[in-house]
Design a protein around this nucleic acid. Structure first.
Lengths: 254, 254
DNA sequence: CTGTGATGTAAAAGTCATACTTTTTGTTCG
DNA sequence: CGAACAAAAAGTATGACTTTTACATCACAG
């Protein structure tokens, strides 16, 4: 799907990144560049470049006399959109979707509040347009068309916040929305309440009502989280060490 | 300081990454691998690996027959800790500190709320310990010692939230706190109110009071933002296109 | 006999130089 | 104005060499 044949480097990187994030080589595994070169039928040059990139993502560490070792999950650069894509394509998609949705529930409300203060008229217009687009496509199994508007909407909010770190989460949100649509972690038609909320956020932003924009967006995020709980019930406690811990939703307000 | 001589690759990567993020090669600039190899007195192999890494950070794009072009700032992977470090070391540290602090103000309160629900007894203990450490070092120009406790405190909160995305922001927060201390974007002694708030957060987490932990942490974050406003006054409107936009603080609550 | 420390060796990554391929841009010529 | 062509730069492959370092071996002291 996203796998173009843009070069050997890309092909190998994709394959290796996917394999590692999928847990095919568990943390601690050791790879050797010569082996990889043979396995993928490319030169060591290519493998070395790939390894360097994976290293910069903290997926692996390369040490002399020992090889390329897969790092423990906690050290991965999980904000790298590439890593996110790989993990969403893999086995722990549910867990990943939940983490990311919780992140959204923290960031997007604040971003929306800032957007209400900072959005340009053009952004207000675009926001309303996308909200209306969502309304228009919210019925009749038109999930793909709906998704496009949904992504655009959230991207505009994050952009309009005027904060660069928020803006860069646009890709992440896009991956989340795409992931939950394409993997059916979603109802057949979008939740009508959510659609309404989006329209209201657009109104609040246009009306410079930061508090309202923030609160409405919080409702959207919490709704998404609830939906996730229904459609992808929380997995059993992680098999790691330490006492089992609940992973509840963020606050629902006083 | 952090520049070890771990190899040619690291040296060149550091130099180039720093130069690019510092705007020494403005977006659109074209570099050629052969030139770089000459300039840094290393082989093309090394340069290519470095370029590949910079490419994975979306700092540059490499195209045949054209060269390695620096990408526009908006496309950089600003969540990559490496990129953050480079930018904090460069000219737009103030802007960077502000963006990151706003991000903190969104994320940390929610993380603290979750931590109150999820923290292990051991984490509660450690949290209290660090808070007390902050108290102990909060007077007498002991900023370095204070910093250590401050970083540890926030790391524990983010970890204890049980959310992997939050946990990974520990490095970012550490960079922010370190940056503002080392570059004197901070008072001579820590704000006593902030110190007290940290102690109270530790209490709230131990007492499983999520709402209180969240609200107190929000106060900490907003305090940091205010301090930034006092000590590093907002720069003039960015020279980019579009109407000038204010960048106010996130909501201060109803 | 056992634990400890120096020494040596080989395995793997790191580096370099070179030759060759492929893509792409810009120019020239019909 | 379009098509063929030439050159530029990245992409790929290969082989030789260097550097680091884990591990084994061996000597010696307790």
């Amino acid at each position: 799907m996203t796998t173009q044949a843009r070069g050997l480097h890309t092909r190998v990187l994709e394959a290796l990144g996917l394999a590692i994030t999928a847990g095919e080589y568990p943390p601690g595994s050791v790879l050797r560049t010569d082996d990889l070169a043979q396995r993928f039928e490319v030169s060591r040059t290519v493998v070395r470049e790939v390894v360097r990139v994976l290293e910069s993502m903290h997926l692996v560490a390369s040490r002399r006399r020992v090889g390329v070792t897969v790092r423990p999950t906690e050290q991965w650069n999980v904000y790298d959109p590439q890593v996110i894509r790989w993990r969403l394509a893999g086995a722990d998609r549910p867990r990943q979707l939940r983490s990311l949705t919780v992140l959204r529930s923290a960031v997007e409300p604040v971003a929306a509040g800032l957007a209400a203060l900072n959005a340009t008229p053009e952004q207000c217009r675009a926001l309303t347009e996308e909200a209306l687009g969502m309304v228009a496509t919210s019925r009749g199994r038109r999930l793909e068309a709906y998704l496009v508007h949904d992504i655009a909407f959230h991207r505009i909010v994050l952009d309009a916040s005027g904060n660069e770190m928020f803006a860069r989460l646009g890709d992440v949100v896009a991956e989340v929305l795409t992931g939950r649509t394409h993997h059916h972690v979603m109802f057949d038609d979008p939740d009508p309440a959510a659609v309404t909320l989006h329209v209201q956020v657009a109104e609040a932003v246009r009306g410079r009502d930061a508090v309202r924009a923030e609160e409405l967006t919080r409702q959207i995020a919490l709704g998404a989280l609830r939906e996730l709980d229904v459609l992808a019930p929380r997995a059993e406690p992680a098999p790691g060490p330490g006492p089992s811990r609940a992973v509840p939703m963020p606050h629902t307000g006083p």
